[in-house]
């Protein structure tokens, strides 16, 4: 292909956008609307998951040992716990650590009356999980080990978080399916309008002796550009809204800052921007190919 042909094709693609400005606007609006919904939903989902994950990381199981257990057995149990896939972190709390912590938290200066450590038998492992839904299996395993007196766990929190995770999963699948169906419907409508506008033009090109590539290329360039513009607009809007919402939430619900732990804008957009532009360009590419393809066999 000649360089002049390449530039001509590219120029035609850009000019096509302005030639059919209403069609272009309709396409940009359609793609923009779909990607706006996608972006909003993605931001909500990742934040929800982040909040749940943060809460999950705070849920721990405490393992107490039999009285008079030997240090070597404690070490063995520690090694066995480390090998479990559901464990993300394990902290050893000695009897002295437990007593100091208790003193600081509840007794203060009144602790002076104690000459011995009343929590002598309370050395333990604090175990943090990767996924709270695995709590039951880990507890069963721990209870089956020799040398373990008691396993404390937070059943209500674990069940709530586990249920929430499942709910998010189902809602995600449902909303994505609805969004996809709406997108396909809107885009196929826009493409149908595109076909009626372009049919005659494509026929003329083919009669004069244009190759399929020559006919297709400006439409494809036009489609990709429309897709990219249709992506940039919702990205900009979501960026603005997201910044406003997290700033507002941080200020308005200061008390809940531990619970409402939002992801920073950069973390969300590091994935959202390339994915949105990719989907936008992809929709534009496929839409234009589908529009032209039907009419190339002239």
């Amino acid at each position: 292909m000649r360089i002049s042909t390449f530039f001509y094709t590219f120029k035609q693609g850009i000019r096509n956008i302005f030639r059919n400005k209403w069609f272009s606007l309709a396409s940009i609006a359609t793609i923009g609307a779909c990607l706006f919904l996608f972006g909003m939903f993605y931001s909500i989902i990742v934040n929800f998951q982040h909040i749940v994950k943060t809460a999950e990381e705070g849920v721990s199981i405490t393992v107490f040992f039999d009285e008079g257990i030997e240090d070597s057995r404690v070490e063995e149990i520690g090694n066995l716990i480390d090998k479990r896939p559901e464990v993300s972190k394990k902290v050893f709390v000695s009897a002295d650590d437990a007593w100091n912590s208790f003193k600081d938290e509840y007794l203060g200066e009144y602790s002076d009356g104690f000459t011995e450590n009343p929590l002598a038998d309370s050395e333990n492992f604090e175990i943090y999980l990767n996924d709270v839904s695995m709590q039951d299996s880990l507890v069963s395993y721990l209870e089956s080990l020799d040398g373990i007196r008691q396993v404390n766990r937070s059943e209500v929190t674990a069940n709530t978080l586990s249920g929430m995770n499942m709910l998010i999963g189902y809602v995600s699948v449902g909303i994505i399916a609805i969004l996809l169906a709406v997108s396909v419907f809107l885009i196929s409508n826009t493409v149908t309008i595109g076909i009626s506008i372009r049919k005659e033009e494509i026929n003329i090109m083919k009669y004069i002796g244009a190759t399929d590539f020559f006919v297709r290329a400006p439409f494809v360039i036009e489609g990709i550009l429309i897709g990219l513009i249709g992506s940039a607009i919702p990205i900009g809007i979501i960026y603005y809204l997201y910044s406003v919402v997290i700033t507002y939430a941080a200020a308005r619900f200061n008390m809940l800052s531990q619970l409402l732990n939002f992801l920073p804008v950069g973390d969300v957009f590091a994935t959202l921007v390339p994915v949105t532009f990719g989907i936008g360009a992809g929709i534009g590419f496929l839409g234009s190919i589908a529009t032209v393809r039907k009419h190339l066999r002239v």
Binding site: K206, Y207, I208, G209, A210, T211, D212, F214, R297
Partner: peptide, 14 residues
Amino acid sequence: RHGKIPKFRRNLGV
């Protein structure tokens, strides 16, 4: 062949 049709049509004014 389909790919040869454009070249053919360039020699055919319509």
